[in-house]
Nucleic acid binder design. Structure first.
Length: 378
RNA sequence: CGGUAAGUUGAACAAUUGGUUGGUUCGCCAGACUGUAAAUCUGGUCUCUUCGGAGCUUGGAGGUUCGAAUCCUUCCUUGCCGA
């Protein structure tokens, strides 16, 4: 195993734990946010800048890197670390999320967390633009529309060439509107694929299996048991987390209680600030989320006083940093009025400054949670 | 002073040369976004409204007509040409 997970302290008041994951590219303190670098870049920032946001590990994407530039290019460049000049640990997602986002997610115009008011959407049998078979998924290239097949074998072989420290099994991320029957059938495939992934992998990269099962307790538990009985180095928890966010912690507890304590748990794609304490208390060690970077490019800053939409004209009058308590380079050197001006002028630097601040803020937020666990507060 | 072209909106343009437009784009305002098809998408943007609708609009005034942003008269404003 090329990673080494150590738990330093377990909370007495929740399932939270503090620890670290050792990898060839350094140590990650957990719990830890994993910023999303889909295309081998945190959009708008250089690797050096990302380092200054106190980010410890990034996650990139197999589907997108396979499409462009292609894993051969990465292989010839000595792997993704060297390619993107990121010297710290990396993860790659398997492409399993694209089975959802380019499939039912696109058809039904839903995200992986459903809002209460969207419940009417009916689950279709098959997604329109991709074809899911027992061996894998036929995608349509986002670049030229040509057919593109990705299954467990393909995903692992590509991830080996990309060369991240931690890689994920190829799964089907199910839609939040998926019914029981669909979710159960899908789960069977995800489980079969998990075994194929383990057999395929030849490198010493750490491979995480992914638990699915949607909103259904028995399926979640069945999945957690099945996946944890396989020889994975850690576990991803994927898919949806309830029609209603309030159930998230409960749903996580179904899964976590079935997972071995000594292996790391990664929650896939969850991480609003409001969610963080909940998921960490439920026993999650790492989690990735596009929110800090994605919202930044839309003009939203996360601060200790809540979200600020820097597109709004009122901020032209605010001659103060985004967050008075923040010590990031952006808050030390730039004012809301300037960032607002940049956003309204469509200047890319506005997005850069917000991306930097948000990542710094999120990482700082998680660091405080780590300290709270160490101090017995959480 | 004479000639000529034009005047719609927050801005720039449109509307079968008489057929009943509030149309497009931008701007502005408001939402949305959780393993990134995402520097994106959706909605609003004349007035009033009990959200079902109702009313009023094409520089001003008048006219022709069943009907005018479109045609006519006149005034105002602006651009261009000429003294």
């Amino acid at each position: 195993m090329s990673i080494n997970f150590k738990i330093l302290k377990k909370s007495k008041v929740s399932s939270a734990r503090v620890g670290f994951i050792e990898t060839e590219h350094g140590v990650i303190e957990t719990p830890c946010l994993v910023p999303v670098a889909t295309q081998g870049v945190i959009k708008t920032l250089t690797a050096e800048e990302v380092l200054q946001t106190n980010s410890q590990i990034l996650i990139s994407n197999t589907f997108h890197l396979h499409e462009r530039p292609g894993e051969k290019v990465l292989e010839k460049n000595g792997g993704l670390h060297k390619f993107m000049n990121w010297k710290k640990p990396l993860m790659t997602d398997s492409g399993g999320f694209q089975v959802f986002s380019l499939g039912f997610g696109k058809d039904q115009k839903v995200g992986k967390v459903l809002k209460n008011n969207n419940e009417k959407i009916k689950q279709a049998e098959k997604p329109k633009e991709i074809k899911i078979t027992n061996d894998g998924v036929f995608f349509k290239s986002l670049i030229n529309g040509s057919e593109l097949f990705l299954g467990p074998k393909e995903s692992i072989k590509i991830q080996e060439k990309i060369g991240a420290d931690i890689i994920f099994a190829f799964d089907e991320c199910t839609s939040p509107v998926a019914n029981y029957e669909y979710t159960k059938r899908s789960l069977l495939k995800t489980h079969q694929w998990a075994e194929v992934c383990l057999k395929t992998k030849k490198t010493k990269q750490a491979l995480y299996g992914i638990v699915q099962g949607g909103k259904y307790k028995d399926l979640r538990q069945e999945s957690a048991k099945f996946i944890s009985n396989l020889n994975f180095d850690g576990f991803g928890i994927g898919g949806e987390f309830g029609d209603d966010k309030s159930k998230m912690a409960e749903m996580l507890s179904w899964v976590v209680s079935e997972l071995p304590e000594k292996k790391p748990r990664h929650l896939l794609g969850i991480g609003y600030l409001d969610d963080m304490k909940k998921i960490i208390k439920a026993g999650v060690d790492t989690f990735d989320c596009t929110v800090p970077t994605h919202y930044a490019r839309r003009g939203v800053a996360f601060t200790s006083l809540g979200r600020l939409d820097l597109n709004k004209a009122i901020f032209l009058k605010k001659n103060e940093p985004l967050d008075k308590g923040c010590v990031c380079n952006v808050c030390l050197n730039y004012k809301k009025s300037y960032i607002c001006h940049l956003m309204r002028s469509r200047e890319i630097t506005g997005m850069r400054l917000l991306t930097f601040h948000n990542l710094h803020f999120f990482n700082n937020f998680v660091e405080k949670i780590r300290n709270d666990i160490k101090n017995g507060k959480i």
